[in-house]
Design a protein around this nucleic acid. Structure first.
Lengths: 199, 199
DNA sequence: GCCATTATATGATGCATATCATATTATAAG
DNA sequence: CTTATAATATGATATGCATCATATAATGGC
């Protein structure tokens, strides 16, 4: 073996990371193979030594994006008890920072409407990521909650929907205020606030 | 004037309607000018007699999609009092039918993640549509609600997010069950259920 | 230092697509 | 019926992109 045996894997990783950013920022159709390779410091030619197709790269990019987001939030919530973890999650997710940086944010908010139009590999990667996030949030919900998975899915829908909607608002200040409102509503639905909380 | 003076306007309308479907189904980048013209029964050549650019068409298509959705829901809720109208809205929006037919559904759910990547005309059309829907829902919310616009926006985020997420689920039956759950949660947040409802 | 082999680069191909220039067709007025 | 003109079609251009064939460069073992 001539090159160090980790060399190819390392470049592959670089390419995938570049793709993970580019795809969230410009969308699966908005980004080209050559562009991603260039961002990873390579030219387009070597691409097919790493991936059988563009779709395979996009699928890998989505996996990577979910993995990185999960890691980010794990770090953010480690050592916290369940209510604090949930609150910390919402406080990080439903924010102007997340709105401003899709390229390092949650793939659900960044790609929700692109997804139905992607091929099966991409959809599978995305679906697995969604399920993983829902499961993580469900695990933090109070055990007396009758259907934690269902509530978790509903919370994910609202959080991702809120960030996506906020990205459609052109006025950043107004978007920020609205995100703060949405954040408060979401936290109050998480089941740990004063009694009386519904659903 | 040789052709009847409404002829061009009529074809324009046909083109915009075709575009409104195609854009929601295949996305702004997934659809071509020639394709849309063909769906309207024309060839691609005449296009620039109607629109100065593809972006202008996409913007018009989004306006049309919002207009049609608004009309649809107006018909659905006419004559109902506010609580019934809200419930009818949620019962029509958060459904497997909506999940299955983005091409005649809400542009918010169909295009949320594409939007930040579009040009200013398209974004303006979308933003106006979003604000219109939020305003309509806010008008149905109970007057004692402290901030109806904010709650309405939150509800729109959750409804659109729920439909978008459901479209990422490959198992239609599971998606349907989950949509039913989400629908119940959304209706219970609309402020007209048994006392004790929060936020 | 040289060789075999693996990784990346150069360059080509074919296809799709936005845009535009020019030709053709349809129709209302005379 | 003829004609002027508005509406649409045909065809061309240019560009961008996924994919692939072939050439070059990098590196560990001898």
């Amino acid at each position: 073996m001539r090159y160090s045996d980790t060399h190819k894997q390392e470049t592959r990783k670089k390419v995938v990371k570049a793709a993970a950013k580019a795809v969230r920022l410009r969308g699966p159709e908005g980004v080209g193979v050559a562009e991603i390779m260039a961002e990873a410091g390579l030219t387009h030619g070597g691409f097919y030594a790493h991936f059988p197709s563009k779709e395979a790269l996009v699928a890998a990019a989505i996996e990577e994006a979910f993995r990185a987001s999960a890691q980010r939030f794990e770090k953010l919530t480690e050592g916290l008890d369940a209510p604090a973890a949930l609150a910390a999650f919402a406080d990080a997710y439903v924010t102007p920072e997340h709105r401003a940086h899709p390229e390092r944010g949650c793939p659900i908010a960044a790609l929700s409407s692109d997804l139905p139009r992607q091929g099966p590999q991409v959809r599978a990667a995305y679906e697995a990521g969604v399920r993983g996030l829902i499961r993580r949030i469900a695990g933090w919900l109070p055990t007396q909650e009758p259907d934690r998975e269902s509530l978790a899915a509903s919370l994910v829908a609202e959080m991702a929907g809120a960030v996506a909607l906020s990205r459609a608002m052109s006025d950043a200040a107004a978007a920020g205020r609205w995100l703060a409102d949405a954040r408060a509503r979401i936290k109050s639905r998480m089941g740990f606030d004063a009694a009386g909380s519904q659903s």
